[in-house]
């Protein structure tokens, strides 16, 4: 992969987009690739839309922010509105299909706009807490910045101590990761 892959992940504070971004770029870095992650933050410590700008490349990375992303994932109505500016004809735009009243706000110029029922799946099939891991699975499937085994390794590295305390968490998180990939696979 010669090109730099640019990802903007956006959600409400507490949805875990920053931790997912951190784990993903960490996985790429562990593979020896160049990765850059910058959290977009405001004055307040909590609340508000949180955007994570990630770039992964085989070369040194230029400016930490970018105008247009290869992949945008938006997890709330405000996040959708906030991130359409990063979309152009090369962008895959993924949003959670449970978000209401955003049809008019979805980007019209994207390469693909994909709604996935990540929140529903998390709540009904897995656990609300792994919502962001489903999103991570989707992001990895859409970009292949790392492959699934490496993504699992990264989760293990980050959450291993929790897995030790509660062994059920490991398959739960890994299933969530795979489920996220499945949700987007057919639609890309």
């Amino acid at each position: 992969m010669a090109k730099t892959v640019k990802i903007a992940l956006a959600g409400e504070g507490g949805q875990g987009v920053q931790s997912v971004a951190g784990i993903m770029v960490g996985a790429a870095n562990d593979k020896g690739r160049e990765a850059l992650y910058i959290p977009n933050f405001g004055v307040e410590q909590r609340g508000g839309v949180s955007v994570a700008f990630c770039q992964i490349s085989d070369d040194k990375i230029g400016s930490p922010k970018f105008k247009k992303a290869d992949l945008v994932i938006a997890l709330s109505d405000r996040a959708v509105r906030r991130t359409t500016q990063y979309v152009d004809e090369n962008t895959v735009f993924i949003y959670d299909s449970s978000i209401e009243d955003i049809e008019d706000d979805l980007p019209k110029n994207a390469k693909k706009v994909i709604g996935i029922p990540a929140l529903d799946v998390a709540k009904k099939e897995l656990h609300p807490r792994v919502f962001n891991v489903i999103i991570m699975g989707a992001a990895i499937e859409a970009t292949h910045i790392v492959e699934m085994p490496e993504a699992k390794e990264a989760l293990e590295k980050k959450l291993g101590y929790k897995f030790e305390q509660n062994p059920k968490l490991r398959p739960l998180n890994f299933t969530a990761l795979e489920k996220g990939a499945e949700l987007v696979k057919e639609l890309l």
Binding site: E34, L36, P39, F41, I61, P64
Partner: peptide, 9 residues
């Protein structure tokens, strides 16, 4: 602030 907050290798 970018340099402060971003992660890179």
């Amino acid at each position: 602030g970018y340099q402060a907050k971003m992660r890179e290798s």
